[in-house]
Amino acid sequence: MNADRFDLGGGEPIITLRDVAKSYWREALEIPVLQGIDLEIPRGAYIALMGPSGSGKTTLLNLVAGIDRPTGGSLEVCGHELNALDDDQLAAWRNAHVGFIFQNYNLVPVLNAFENVELPLLLTGAGRGERRDRVEEALALVNLTDRMWNYPRQLSGGQEQRVAIARAIVTDPDLLVADEPTGALDAKNAEEVLALMARLNSEYQKTIVMVTHDPKAAHHARHQIHLEKGVLDKAVEVNR
């Protein structure tokens, strides 16, 4: 591994964080979670955020994904200054630019795989035919065309996560954020999911930011960023 600090390979930044801070308040007590985060992530990067529990990696991921707001500093992601967007604008921005992959898949149990993947497209104004084409394309990419009418309860954990990935990419977002995407999977399924994410990064140029505890998962990324007690500790390039 290359241990150069915060050198993520250059190129046009898709994520720029300037002095970002995040604190939570418990009554009058301020609990700082992130402090003074300065970071540029170039388009097409595949980053693994690592660090011990409570180091702030998920909080950083949430800020980058626009589902949480910083208490200080500025974030520019996919060409938008997130602090300048109101809640509805931020929601529309997420729909257009960010795909989410969760540890527990978080599929809607009453919808089949096709409908789960179609969900984010309902907000795009795409017609029925276009939605169908895009859903089928996304499910084909995760190799689940034959399971598109199955409900989550009829799928294995690995298949559920692949449906979740199809849902994340169906709107063709610039950025994929993944929080412990293999945390609930066995080794074989985890490997399949990680391979799929690597393919999305290499073939489809999706920028991926992944939080993980698992060194094997982190090894699939191109860079690892380590956090320690809410501050960036180091960035390392993964040598394969």
């Binding site: 994904a65 509805d88 929601a91 997420r94 989410f100 978080n106 984010p120 907000l123 849902r167």
Partner: peptide
Amino acid sequence: TTEIAVFRAMGFSAGR
């Protein structure tokens, strides 16, 4: 609760 959060993360506004 979680499902609602997922909907909103995907871009569904609170109003929707």
